[in-house]
Write a protein that binds this DNA or RNA. Structure first.
Lengths: 333, 333
DNA sequence: GTGAAAGCGCTAACAG
DNA sequence: CTGTTAGCGCTTTCAC
């Protein structure tokens, strides 16, 4: 690759016989320029193959036309939908999309934010592991939008799992289950807390005994220990923090010769890739994660420029729905 | 979020009683500054919470400390490993990672490259859909590294599937198969071509009849039509362009009551998430995709700064290995 | 409607 | 070793 001096706004100006500022206007505020000059400038720019420098624009204007998304674990299929949705939306708006993996660490989130602070217009924090306090503090200085996390006063897009969690309980109750175990996810996960609250709440209403176990790493491997722990409790139904964990449980139960769903029913969250072709296929709470990602980008875009004056803080709530497959069935006896 | 005037290099300079250039040096070339002043400047910078502006640095120096990765389809699990590997490596080097989905379109690749050209130090093209000519042309102006694609003279990291493809044939031959069908992927996919060449080559040596069908969309849904097409041929073994397609085939065959592997054996490529827990579990050619992503970033880093003088063009070749699971077995009869 | 000029924050000669 | 001086490419008053 060679860099034969990119053509700048000045090259265009000279060639077109106008001032640089006119070229700039032609590009940013076409209507503030005489139609004739405008056409001419555009033609010259086109001919010279002029491409604006986003860097220079950003440095001068303060707008970078870039957003960064921070994800605890890129590898986790749970986030694929969110990432895709956000990327698509950003791309459609001509916004550059930066993706960063924070490896499940709140400290990493902070570091990355500091690092990128001046290069982006805002951050999308997906399932942030940081405390509410820290997030609020950061929001003082940065433009933030949260995904699957709520913090007072901050814009967020979350796939509602409260209603869905109750649906899970109802589903299990209707199948005759009288007890369930919830396998919780990462300790700092806000979602994990939300889900447990709703499950317990639902369980109470239906006179079902609910127990929480964990935390377990929200990955396939976590399923081994989780499954064994479940068997000890004698519960007839288990709800895992996410599908990854649920599939891990399924595998371990199969290994141990435990019949699902005859002996025990298993439910997950997210409806990730694979939930429909594992065996037995997984009953799970599905949600439009990609829409959440998409909404987050929109929230960010709305909120920029308006340095201080923030909008009536927007919260987007997306509905989830229960997908019933083969891993849940009539309670034993 | 409020922006109370970020502290600049000038603030630090004034506060420390030195020139701005000294502050700059202290940060870039610490050794060119008197130890005492250095300490002092660093202390002041620290105290003022100074953070450099990547934009200003980039504008001035031409280096953006950013790389962009272009992927045909973020959604495709095949790329997850590559994306993760690249992101990790970039992150470790303090390099900002831009991710962009090109939606399987060569034109989109071109557009995105033009768009980002001045904001990044280089591009990682994963499984590019562009023609060799176009890529070579782009390489004149941009710093490129290819993943799973080879173009004369350009740095690339590819997971070798030639050797692996022959292993697949040997595996099938040893099970008594005398014919196989290859389900090809996207028309413009270089990989698809490579794989077919190696398969056919291997088949020839083992006196196996090999037929190519397709192209099929390399996704689960592509498996339906593909499976039906295979059955018509009467072949006893099918090798799909990737695991997604292979799993799709598996599902369709199950639907039609065709016993895998007793009636027909199925092989995929990539060993994606899910290949081990679909039913039957999938025999597939696994490769270190994340290392390919990682290597690509390294190639890019090596190659930057050296504007014209390119290194003896580096090509990284990663070995693949055959993972034998339940979807392949003895040929019928 | 258009031009001149001042910077955005930083780096890189070039002096001293 | 350190300060001065130009810009990098673009936007944005402020005049004309």
């Amino acid at each position: 690759m060679t860099s034969p001096k990119r053509t700048t706004i000045y090259d265009v100006a000279r060639e077109a016989g106008v001032a640089a500022s006119t070229v700039s206007r032609t590009l940013r505020n076409p209507r503030r320029v005489n139609a004739a000059t405008r056409e001419h400038v555009l033609a010259v720019a086109e001919r010279l193959g002029y491409r604006p420098s986003p860097l220079a624009t950003a440095l001068q204007s303060g707008r970078t036309a870039t957003v960064a998304m921070l994800v605890p674990d890129i590898t986790n299929p749970h986030f694929f939908g969110t990432i895709r949705g956000a990327e698509r939306r950003a791309s459609a708006a001509g916004i550059t999309f930066i993706l960063s993996d924070t490896e499940e660490s709140a400290d990493n989130e902070l570091t990355k934010i500091e690092h990128l602070a001046r290069s982006v217009d805002g951050f999308i924090l997906a399932a942030s592991r940081m405390s509410d306090e820290r997030i609020l503090e950061l929001a003082e200085e940065h433009n933030l939008a949260l995904v699957n996390r709520e913090v007072r006063g901050l814009p967020s897009a979350v796939v509602d799992t409260s209603v869905g969690s109750r649906q899970i309980v109802e589903h299990l109750a209707s199948l005759g289950h009288r007890s369930l175990v919830y396998l919780s996810g990462p300790h700092q996960s806000w979602l994990a807390g939300e889900r447990w609250d709703s499950l317990r709440d639902g369980a109470e209403r239906h006179g079902i005994r609910a127990v929480r176990l964990g935390p377990f790493p929200p990955r396939l491997v976590g399923g081994g220990a989780a499954a064994d722990a479940v068997l000890v409790t004698g519960a007839t139904a288990v709800v895992a923090h996410n599908d990854l964990l649920a599939i891990g449980v399924l595998r371990r139960l199969a290994e141990r010769g435990v019949d699902v769903p005859r002996r025990i029913s298993v439910v997950g969250y997210d409806d990730i890739f694979g939930a429909d072709f594992c065996v037995p296929s997984l009953t799970t709470l599905a949600g439009p994660q990609d829409q959440a990602g998409r909404a987050a980008v929109e929230l960010l875009l709305e909120n920029r420029s308006r340095s201080t004056a923030r909008t009536p803080d927007r919260r987007v709530m997306l509905p989830s729905h229960l997908v019933i497959r083969e891993s849940t069935g009539q309670a034993p006896e």
